Amino acid sequence: MGTDLGIYCVLYFKVDSFSEPKGFNDSASLLLDLNKKAQEEDLGNICIIVYDCTEKTSVCKL
């Protein structure tokens, strides 16, 4: 049993009051690290998707 393909979805949310995961300044650096680890474990058939849920500054407030 098993599968040949998979999706790993990560919700990224980082604000002053919630600073986890430590070591990652943005969702792109987290995605790069997860993809690197997936390749090291021979999980190339796993699609990693990171959704950045961090609140963005509104255009009208810039």
Rank of each mutant, 00 (worst) to 15 (best):
M1Q: 09
G2W: 08
G2S: 11
T3A: 11
T3M: 09
T3D: 10
D4W: 08
L5K: 13
L5D: 14
L5T: 14
I7G: 02
I7E: 13
Y8H: 09
Y8A: 14
C9L: 15
V10W: 01
V10H: 02
V10G: 06
V10C: 05
Y12C: 06
F13D: 11
F13C: 08
V15A: 11
D16Q: 09
D16S: 07
D16I: 05
D16H: 03
D16C: 00
S17G: 00
S17W: 06
F18Q: 12
S19C: 10
S19D: 13
S19H: 08
E20A: 14
E20R: 12
E20L: 14
P21R: 05
P21C: 06
P21D: 03
P21T: 03
K22E: 13
K22P: 04
G23T: 05
G23N: 03
F24C: 01
N25D: 13
N25F: 09
N25R: 12
D26Q: 00
D26N: 14
D26L: 05
S27H: 04
A28T: 12
S29E: 13
S29I: 06
L30V: 05
L30Y: 02
L30D: 01
L31Q: 07
L32E: 15
D33F: 08
D33W: 07
D33M: 06
L34F: 02
N35S: 05
N35I: 05
K36W: 07
K36E: 15
K36V: 07
K36R: 14
K36Q: 14
K37W: 06
K37G: 05
K37P: 03
K37Q: 13
A38D: 07
A38V: 06
A38R: 05
Q39T: 09
Q39C: 03
Q39L: 11
E40N: 12
E41L: 15
L43I: 04
L43E: 07
N45Y: 11
N45K: 11
N45F: 10
N45T: 13
I46S: 01
C47V: 15
C47L: 15
I48D: 03
I48P: 01
I48Y: 01
I49M: 10
I49V: 15
I49F: 08
I49L: 15
I49G: 04
V50T: 02
V50Q: 02
D52K: 04
D52G: 05
D52R: 05
C53A: 13
T54Y: 00
T54D: 03
E55R: 04
E55N: 07
T57Q: 04
T57F: 01
T57I: 11
S58H: 04
S58E: 10
S58T: 00
C60D: 12
K61D: 11
L62K: 07
L62D: 06
